[in-house]
Simulated assay, not measured.
Amino acid sequence: MAIRTASAAGSRPRFTGRAAMLALVLCSLIAALAYPTRQFIAQRADIAAQRAAAEQARARVEELRREKARWQDPAYVRTQARERLHYAMPGETPYVSVDPSAGQRSSDASAPTRGGARQPWYASVWDSVDTADRAVSAPPRP
């Protein structure tokens, strides 16, 4: 039996051909599995987003079913016609009160937007081109 000494064990190279091959195989596996793993994670996120969208769609369908059921009730339809369209039953006299100051406030707020909305945008662009052309074509004064 041979007894190894500390100097013999220390002279052995740490990075052998087997270790290099093992490192190469591990790097190849990591590189080969990186793209499928990324795709798997992205697909899982897409599935979660689709499930959330499906749940929202189910909730919207249920809300629309409840609204449809309300519109099947004649009393609800009558109430909505009175509120939205100002309908009145035969023999009733409908009154609509109008606040005169509300009309003045809304017309004052929309006055600046009406001035620019009189003509389309392309007409104002063409007018500005005409104005610039007239300014250039005028003869210079001595």
Score class of each variant (00 low, 15 high):
2 A>H: 08
2 A>N: 11
3 I>H: 04
3 I>A: 13
4 R>D: 11
7 S>I: 10
9 A>Q: 05
10 G>A: 14
10 G>Q: 10
11 S>C: 07
11 S>N: 15
11 S>D: 10
12 R>Y: 01
16 T>P: 02
17 G>Q: 11
18 R>T: 12
22 L>W: 04
22 L>S: 12
22 L>Q: 14
24 L>K: 13
26 L>A: 09
26 L>I: 05
26 L>N: 05
29 L>A: 06
29 L>P: 01
30 I>G: 04
30 I>S: 12
30 I>T: 06
32 A>E: 06
32 A>V: 03
33 L>C: 06
33 L>G: 09
33 L>D: 00
33 L>I: 05
37 T>G: 15
38 R>K: 04
38 R>A: 14
39 Q>G: 05
39 Q>E: 09
40 F>R: 13
40 F>S: 14
41 I>S: 09
46 D>V: 00
46 D>A: 13
46 D>T: 11
47 I>S: 08
53 A>M: 07
54 A>Q: 14
55 E>L: 12
56 Q>A: 12
58 R>Q: 13
59 A>Q: 12
60 R>H: 02
62 E>Q: 13
63 E>C: 02
64 L>R: 08
64 L>Y: 01
64 L>V: 03
65 R>C: 01
67 E>W: 13
67 E>Q: 12
68 K>P: 03
68 K>R: 09
69 A>K: 08
69 A>E: 14
69 A>P: 03
69 A>N: 06
72 Q>C: 00
72 Q>W: 01
72 Q>M: 10
74 P>F: 13
74 P>Q: 11
74 P>A: 08
74 P>E: 07
77 V>W: 02
78 R>N: 07
78 R>G: 07
80 Q>S: 01
80 Q>D: 12
80 Q>C: 09
81 A>F: 03
82 R>Q: 06
84 R>W: 01
85 L>C: 07
86 H>D: 00
86 H>C: 05
87 Y>F: 15
88 A>F: 10
88 A>Q: 15
89 M>K: 06
91 G>S: 10
92 E>L: 04
93 T>R: 12
95 Y>D: 02
97 S>M: 06
99 D>F: 03
102 A>M: 08
102 A>Y: 12
103 G>F: 05
103 G>D: 02
105 R>S: 14
106 S>T: 15
106 S>R: 11
106 S>W: 00
109 A>P: 03
109 A>W: 07
112 P>F: 00
112 P>D: 11
112 P>A: 05
113 T>V: 01
113 T>M: 03
115 G>Q: 12
116 G>Q: 00
116 G>P: 05
117 A>P: 02
117 A>S: 15
118 R>L: 15
119 Q>T: 03
120 P>A: 14
120 P>F: 08
122 Y>P: 00
122 Y>E: 12
124 S>L: 11
125 V>Y: 14
126 W>T: 00
130 D>L: 13
130 D>H: 08
136 V>G: 00
136 V>T: 13
136 V>H: 11
136 V>Q: 08
136 V>E: 04
137 S>C: 06
